[in-house]
Write a protein that binds this DNA or RNA. Sequence first.
DNA 1: CAATCTTGTTTTGTCATACCAAATTTTTGC
DNA 2: GCAAAAATTTGGTATGACAAAACAAGATTG
Lengths: 251, 251
Amino acid sequence: MVDQADQEISAPDTDGDEAHGESRAADAVVKALEADILSGALPDGRPLPAERDLIQRFGASRTVIREAIIMMSARGMLQSRPRHRPIVKRPDYRTAIDSIGSIIRHLLVDSTDVRNLFDTRIFIERGLVRDAAMSGTKADIEKLAAALEANHAAIDDSEEFYRTDTEFHGVLYGMTRNPVFPAVHAAYAAWLSPHWLRMQRHPERNRVNYGSHKAIFDAIVDRDPEAAERALTDHLRSAWEYVRVTFDADR
Amino acid sequence: MVDQADQEISAPDTDGDEAHGESRAADAVVKALEADILSGALPDGRPLPAERDLIQRFGASRTVIREAIIMMSARGMLQSRPRHRPIVKRPDYRTAIDSIGSIIRHLLVDSTDVRNLFDTRIFIERGLVRDAAMSGTKADIEKLAAALEANHAAIDDSEEFYRTDTEFHGVLYGMTRNPVFPAVHAAYAAWLSPHWLRMQRHPERNRVNYGSHKAIFDAIVDRDPEAAERALTDHLRSAWEYVRVTFDADR
DNA sequence: CAATCTTGTTTTGTCATACCAAATTTTTGC
DNA sequence: GCAAAAATTTGGTATGACAAAACAAGATTG
């Protein structure tokens, strides 16, 4: 509708985006469309124009347009359901992390790989609880208390307990005020949960985990980073033991 | 050559891989090829079979084969230079993180976004130096000493100084014995360096940074996590100040 | 008049072909 | 043997076509 001035694909490699030597017609289209998404000309959540329109706008063949769309979908800049128009997805940390999920899953076939990833989670959360103990605000601690309470109330409902468990840890990530951390938390949840859900669950075990959460919380309230870190480490290490056995049982 | 039994594309959605309802011809090809990569039938580093061969093997059109190749390239399972055969890339943490680089770069347009990412780096390295101080092995510390020495020797060569600076931090990531961390380090280097390289560099500044590295190192040798964390925090915060001004200068 | 059904149009997914230029392999000439 | 040249293969792009699904609009019905 609005004047979309002709924008033929032109210069082969005027940019130094990546380390390749030659042309790539679809790249130009991707670049232009991504620029439109970033600038807001293509608003988030809105469907992409029809392929025919893009063909006209870029003066390229359907092959190239289609290739561009596929690339952008893979990158997470578009969400494309099979027979529908691709939806524009303005990137954020969350979608960025989501976009590597397909690769990460390939890496989590071995228990050592899962362990490596889980160890990074322990590492990060150790830092989180330390910081929470040292500089968590009153509001933060109240939110943590609420999450803890919800966790306690769910002890007899393993499914709900798992959810509130995740949420409790999620509050820790949120306390950083840094949007990267919640995205990381979501990634851990998404990547590790398939392995976690194979674990035995029962109220007794939930009670133990709740106790760990409480210990962490108490240490934070006491402004004792060492104790908080220790409680967190104990908690996650013991959780790992429960997961590990499900691996050993397999082979 | 080897018996590559006919493997026509068949069932639409026998898997519950993602959350969509319908067909997806290229997905079947992607899945089969990725399985071949994971199983080693398509060895890492080797070129993918020619498109025409894949057409025969899967009984699909070139459109579909091509689509599959593009998707896999975007995921990092293939490395495709413009006019060459795609190279098979067995996934690892490094390529996983690389694959989201294109999205991340879109997020790093604003100084606050860069700051958020950089803050996560500070957060992680605070933990790294603490752990190094508490449990770094003698061999680790020797490696760190060597990196520090190389850094010192490069004070008058800003380019080399940057390299050895990165390497010094890289040793900290390596001390975890967890392959995820070096990948994270590489990601930080790749994503932040475009912004860092705009920073003023001169031997005088290099000397200051070297001093910071030395302070971190000394604290680690002294087995003093608090001091190490403090030195690291001071170091990175002051580095940020140098980067920040390049943003302010822009607008 | 609202809700639903029917119908016609658009759009995407897929296939088949074709052509060029670059890459690769083979042949040729020394 | 080895380098240059020719032949072949291969990837990048353009077209055109068609079915099935999605969409929009009109017709029908309660």
